[in-house]
């Protein structure tokens, strides 16, 4: 089985500071890390490889420094990494990203399975997985929470969708997006850590795609959606009354009143 795992380097969202006056993210305020959901995607790939054998390719699009993230992917079980890096790829929305990734996956072919995290923490769209599948004309299953069975020709999974959970069997080639519930990503093994330092990360720039990608199809030019303006959400006005421990009786009276007002009919009386 040949598996391609989509990886994105993202800012550390827990630490990144936000300049609410300028309305911009202070990217220098935090480091970068591998998109947390991508760790689950990678772990899924490693588990499938352990069962049926094969090769895992980590694929990322980003600036040259994203090479570090692909080395981390190798440390965590990928066999090799491909980085799509070119100024022409920059400024891409989900359409241009998916289109470019699809062309890269075709170049890395043959492949049986593409695995992505359910979303990235900086983009938060959850669109790139299904969009990439469509541009590759392969099926997808989104929000996968459990991997039941993997074979060279199909994958049986459970996914959280449509206000329930469904078991689906996808015939390969295909793409899945995985949630955090699917597994606990393991820590890098020592032998893989050593390998990750030495492995060559392939760099593909725009010229690599001279036969299947035009400049109008990628990066900012290939992005039909564009951010026209950034605004700061208005602060929500709150009464902001705080009761000290000595005022618990008053506090209880106040919240009892609110509870009685808001109680939903159907609640026990």
């Amino acid at each position: 089985m040949r598996i391609i795992v989509l990886i994105k380097q993202v800012p550390e969202m827990d630490r990144v500071k936000f300049d609410s006056e300028k309305g911009v993210i202070d990217r220098k305020s935090a480091g970068v890390e591998i998109n947390p959901f991508d760790l689950n995607a990678l772990e899924t790939a490693v588990q499938i490889k352990e069962q049926v054998g094969g090769e895992i390719i980590a694929l990322s699009m980003g600036p040259p420094r994203a090479e570090k993230t692909l080395r981390e992917a190798v440390a965590r079980g990928a066999d090799r990494g491909i980085l799509l890096s070119d100024g022409k790829f920059a400024g891409a929305d989900t359409r241009a990203t998916s289109f470019t990734l699809a062309r890269a996956i075709e170049k890395a072919a043959p492949f049986d399975l593409v695995i992505a995290g359910e979303m990235t923490v900086d983009g938060d769209t959850a669109q790139v997985g299904p969009q990439t599948a469509e541009y590759l004309d392969i099926p997808h299953v989104a929000y996968v929470t459990d991997l039941e069975e993997a074979s060279d020709s199909s994958l049986t999974v459970t996914c959280n969708i449509w206000e329930g959970s469904y078991r689906k069997r996808m015939h390969l080639p295909g793409l899945i997006t995985v949630t955090k519930d699917i597994n606990f990503p393991r820590l890098p093994e020592l032998k893989n850590k050593m390998k990750s330092r030495e492995v060559e990360i392939c760099r593909w720039d725009f010229s690599t795609f001279s036969d299947n990608l035009s400049p109008e199809q990628t990066g900012l030019k290939g992005s039909p959606t564009q951010v026209k303006k950034i605004t700061i959400p208005p602060p929500i006005e709150r009464k902001g009354q705080v009761f000290s421990p000595e005022e618990t009786d008053e506090a209880l009276a106040a919240i009892e009143k609110i509870c009685r007002e808001k109680r939903v009919s159907g609640g026990q009386s």
Partner: peptide, 9 residues
């Protein structure tokens, strides 16, 4: 933290 206003071409 921010609201992005987006238009589609």
């Amino acid at each position: 933290n921010i609201l992005a206003h987006i238009k589609t071409k």
